[in-house]
Structure formats: C-alpha cells, structure tokens
C-alpha cells in the first residue's frame, strides 16, 4: 500500500508540475487509524497529504459531478468499482473524457471506515465484521476498466460463491413474504438520501425526489412514501448500476440496497443481456434501457 501511495503521489506531483490537472482527487488520513476520507489536492503542496491504504474505500467518481459545469482538469484515483463509476458518468454525458486524468489502482479489497467507526464509537454493538468490506466481498471488477495509467498488479475478482445467491433467495420467497420483507426494511429508512448522493449513477441535475411541481414522491416518512422512493430509485438504476455498493455502505440504517440493485442487474442480464454496466467506455454507447430496439422483449406489457 505504501508503494501505491508513493506512486500516486509521484503521479500527482508530476501532473501538477506539468499543469495537466487543477485538482487531484484521492484520499487522506483522519485522526483515527481507520479514518481514511476523500481528499482533493489543489497544488503540489497538498500532495503529501494523499494516502492510499486499506481503508480507501470511498468511491470518488460521484464527486466528479461537483465539477461537471467547470473547466478544471481533474486527476482522479480509481479502483475497479470507482472506474466503472467514471464510465457511468462519461456514458451519461456528465463529463468530458479529456478533462480527466485517471489513475487506476488494482484493488486488493478494502475495509470500511464506517464499520470501524461504528464499532469503536460505542453507538453500535461490535457486530459487524471488520475484515474486507461487504461490498468488496461481492466485487467482480477489482481492476480499473478505464485509466490513463495503472498502478499495482492485477487482482482476481474477490467474489467467492454465487453472485446472485441472495437475490435467488429473495425470488424464492412467496409474494407476501417478499412484500413483508421490503415493507419492514423500508420502514427503517430515514430518507437522508445518502444512497442517492453517493451514487455516480444518480447524476440527474434535478432529481425526481426534489421536484415539487408536481411532487412525484411525498415527503412523509411512512411506508408508502419510503417504498415509492426506493422503487423509483431502483428503476432508475436498472441497467445503470455499476455495483460499487456505496449506497449500501453509507446507509446509516443498513438497508440492503445492493439486493435491489443486484436483482436489477440479474433481470437486465436475463432480459437484455448479457450486459454489465460501465465495463467499457465507448463514445456514444448507452446502457441497455436507454436504447430503443424493436426486438426488445415486451411480454411484461
């Protein structure tokens, strides 16, 4: 990890000196050993604060949206999942490729500072495993799929076992059981929208959930409005979710959001596949459900 950090720093220093970037997005260290957080270096002087360690889990690609209207050239460090987020944002025409300098890092799997923080803060029982983060244990793409330079040795996928195991279990439930499961789960949602804010696929300028005229989704925290929020969000993810798992990771009430997203990945694959979102950037390419094709199945109509 130290070696990777040094290489990232070298690259950042070079890019700043050559004037290739105005901002360099990576991570830095907080006070506690497990606190690694997003960091934007703005000059050579900031480069020393950059770190890449076992807690550099935060997907920085969504943060690019803060700069989508600007002119700044941005250097960004991406792991496998983050790089798919970058592809998502490029494919959705939210950023120009030539404004980015992408430093790819082959990811050995990360730990989650939020889990560690919760465990040590005293706010939760130490009931979450502190090893490799849940989202990384489901990772199929540890190596960056888009980059200008790459650091580290290629990693094998971290996913062990069946990718859709939990989805299958859910599909095997009866309709009533499934409804109860989701109704119970969504009843705990506090509507903080962290899942939306952290998501690189949630890049609409005006989100449907913020619209007032008409107000598509009510603001009450009850099962109707909560379910509406999650259903609408899920549909917007169909064929677009790049499976970085950030939504589920940041959720303060632990809603298993990736279960929904993975169900959609499975369905899109079965209906329109094979298709994996954000695996390759090709100018003009669109996700499955953003394309009209007369041969698409319509048996659900």
């Amino acid at each position: 990890m130290k070696e990777i950090t040094n290489k990232i720093k070298e690259t950042a220093t070079r890019l700043f000196k050559e004037g290739q970037v105005d901002i360099f997005m990576a991570w830095t260290k907080g006070d506690l050993p497990f606190q690694t957080k997003p960091y934007f270096a703005r000059s050579v002087d900031d480069v020393d604060n950059i770190i890449f360690d076992e807690y550099s889990i935060h997907n920085l690609s969504g943060t690019l949206l803060k700069f989508r209207d600007g002119q700044e050239k941005i250097g960004i460090v991406v792991k496998g999942c983050d790089s798919r987020g970058v592809v998502r944002i490029l494919e959705d025409n939210q950023f120009q490729r030539d404004r980015l300098y992408i430093v790819g890092v082959c990811c050995p799997g990360m730990k989650d500072p939020l889990v560690a923080m919760k465990n040590y803060s005293g706010f939760n029982n130490k009931n979450s495993a502190e090893g490799i983060a849940a989202k990384c244990l489901n990772c199929t793409t540890p190596n960056p799929v888009i980059y200008d330079e790459i650091i580290g040795e290629e990693q094998p996928p971290h996913l062990q076992g069946e990718r859709f195991e939990q989805v299958n279990a859910l599909e095997n439930m009866s309709y009533d059981e499934r409804y109860k499961f989701w109704a119970d789960t969504f009843s705990t949602c506090i509507r903080c929208y962290a899942c939306r804010q952290v998501c690189p696929a949630c890049n609409c300028r005006t989100c449907i959930f913020d619209e007032m005229k008409p107000q598509w989704v009510g603001r009450e925290n009850n099962s109707t409005d909560n379910m509406m929020y999650h259903l609408v969000k899920a549909y917007h993810m169909a064929g677009r979710c790049i499976e970085c798992g950030e939504c589920e990771r940041v959720c303060p009430v632990n809603i298993p959001l990736m279960l929904i997203n993975r169900k959609l990945v499975k369905d899109v694959n079965e209906l329109f596949g094979s298709y994996e979102a954000g695996m390759k950037y090709e100018e003009g390419a669109k996700p499955a459900l953003s394309v009209y094709n007369v041969n698409d199945p319509d048996n659900f109509l």
Binding site: K37, P38, Y39, I190, C192, P252
Partner: peptide, 13 residues
C-alpha cells in the same frame, strides 16, 4: 465543504 456530499445523515442523526 469540498468533500461534503450533501446527504442528510448528519442532520437526521
């Protein structure tokens, strides 16, 4: 503020 993602977790907890 530059890394703040503007979610509402902090305000709701």
């Amino acid at each position: 503020s530059q890394t703040c993602q503007n979610c509402g977790i902090c305000t709701y907890v």
